[in-house]
Computed example of a mutant assay.
Amino acid sequence: MSSTHEPLTILLVDDHPLVRNGLRALLSSVPDLQVAGEAANGKEAITQAATLRPSIILMDLHMPEMNGIEATRHILQANPHIGILVLTMLEDDASVFAAMRAGARGYLLKGADQTEVLRAIGVVAHGEAIFSPPIARRLMQYFANMQPILPASSFPDLTEREREILTLITMGKSNAEIAQELVLSPKTVSNHVSNILSKLQVVDRAQAVLRARQAGLG
Rank of each mutant, 00 (worst) to 15 (best):
E44K: 12
I149S: 09
N191H: 13
R101P: 08
T72M: 08
D204H: 11
Y142G: 03
F97V: 15
A49F: 01
S194F: 12
P31G: 02
Q207D: 08
S190R: 13
A120F: 01
T47W: 00
S3H: 13
R20K: 12
L168A: 06
T51I: 13
A120R: 01
L158N: 02
A120M: 02
L168V: 05
E91A: 09
A112R: 06
A125Q: 01
S194P: 10
H192Y: 15
I46V: 15
I165W: 00
I10Y: 00
R101L: 11
L58R: 05
K199C: 05
L58C: 11
K187C: 08
M171Q: 14
A45I: 08
G37D: 03
S153I: 00
I46A: 00
G216H: 06
H81M: 09
A208T: 01
H126P: 07
M66W: 04
I149N: 09
D32R: 13
A98I: 07
P64H: 06
A50V: 10
N67C: 04
V203L: 05
L76P: 04
T170V: 06
A50S: 13
L158Y: 02
M63F: 12
R213G: 03
D92Q: 12
L197V: 04
D32N: 15
S28R: 14
K199A: 06
Y142H: 14
I46L: 06
Y142D: 05
N79W: 12
L182C: 07
A144T: 11
N67A: 05
I135Y: 03
L150Q: 02
F155W: 04
T88N: 01
P54V: 03
S198M: 09
G22C: 11
S2I: 07
S198R: 10
R20D: 06
S28A: 15
S185F: 12
N21L: 11
G127N: 05
S95G: 12
E181F: 14
D157K: 07
A206K: 09
P17I: 08
P148Q: 02
V209S: 06
I56T: 03
I169G: 00
V13T: 09
L200W: 03
D60H: 07
M66S: 09
A129M: 13
L118G: 06
E65F: 10
A179L: 09
S132I: 03
V117P: 03
Q141M: 08
R53Y: 02
A215R: 01
S154L: 09
A94H: 14
N79H: 15
S2N: 14
G103R: 05
R20E: 08
E38C: 11
S55R: 04
P54Y: 00
Y107D: 00
V202I: 04
S194K: 15
T47L: 12
V193T: 15
K187W: 10
A212F: 03
F143R: 10
I10A: 02
I165Y: 02
L200A: 02
Q180E: 11
G106Q: 00
N67S: 08
V13P: 00
R101F: 11
N145M: 10
L85W: 03
I57P: 01
Q207E: 14
L168H: 13
H74N: 11
R73C: 07
I56D: 05
A176N: 10
I130T: 15
P151I: 01
P54Q: 07
T167M: 12
N21A: 13
A104Q: 01
I75V: 12
H192R: 12
H5K: 15
A152M: 09
Q201T: 06
A99Q: 03
